[in-house]
Design a protein around this nucleic acid. Structure first.
Lengths: 129, 129
DNA sequence: TAACTGTTATATAATGCATATAACAGTATA
DNA sequence: TATACTGTTATATGCATTATATAACAGTTA
């Protein structure tokens, strides 16, 4: 297992964990078929509660990323199980709208904003190793 | 006053309101010097509580967007009061990282993602009227 | 003075987040 | 078949956040 987490503040722990796992998937650090650390194991190594891990895993399962088996653990699904549908695209667009409004209003012009978007995505691709 | 709101679900009301106001600023529907509706007025027209409006206004004031005067109301600041500093840029980048990871993991390729970014920002500019 | 601004104080209720224990149920393996 | 792992369920507690409701206070404007 390769996930390292730094759970500081602001967002809920389970939310941070979900984002870290999605990030790990995005950069190829987690791949189809991999078994995630058990809820007790990860809870222990992060010094947080088992149920917090379980909540994250289950939501990721609902969103198609994982399959959770009693007795076995949480396994990464194949990407076709969670490739974007219309609903997902809508959500991504809504989130982009909030961020781009915030950027524009703060005088980040279009060119600079798009450069930030490009670099952010490119960084994900660069981390396939 | 020109702000129309539809406050449905998920996010906290005050958060939704903040985002709507920032959006209104981004598309030029709200401009420097404009006075926002009074907390009681807006609360009444949205059928929510006065303090929820007040919370949104105050956070927007803390972030530089508004100045709130007792007896007068909430007034839109000049944009130099809230143009992005390093801190703001960091936050925008973090948010972009979360979204782009979600997009990439869901098989939205770079080209399509950047098109979405471009269109979303362009839409804001298109609404200056 | 009257009618408007936002603020402060107090109280209440509902919800979400996180923790803690314990028991239950499925899986793997020695 | 025990034993030791998996995740799940149930119950309880503590705490913070969100949102509401009243009421009084304080500054501004006409």
């Amino acid at each position: 297992m390769i996930i390292k987490l730094m759970l500081e503040s602001e967002k809920p722990l389970y939310q941070q964990l979900k984002e870290k796992i999605i990030y790990a998937l995005a950069i190829g650090e987690l791949e189809e078929g991999e078994i995630l650390p058990s809820v007790r194991q990860l809870a222990s190594s992060l010094s947080i509660n088992m149920h917090t891990i379980s909540k994250a895993y289950n939501q990721l399962a609902t969103e198609g990323f994982l399959t959770v088996h009693k007795g076995k653990g949480a396994i990464v699904n194949s990407s076709d199980k969670y490739s974007a549908g219309e609903e997902d695209i809508s959500i991504i667009k809504e989130n982009l709208q909030v961020i781009s409004a915030e950027a524009k209003v703060r005088s980040v012009d279009k060119k600079i904003f798009l450069k930030m978007c490009e670099e952010t995505y490119a960084e994900l691709e660069g981390k396939k190793d």
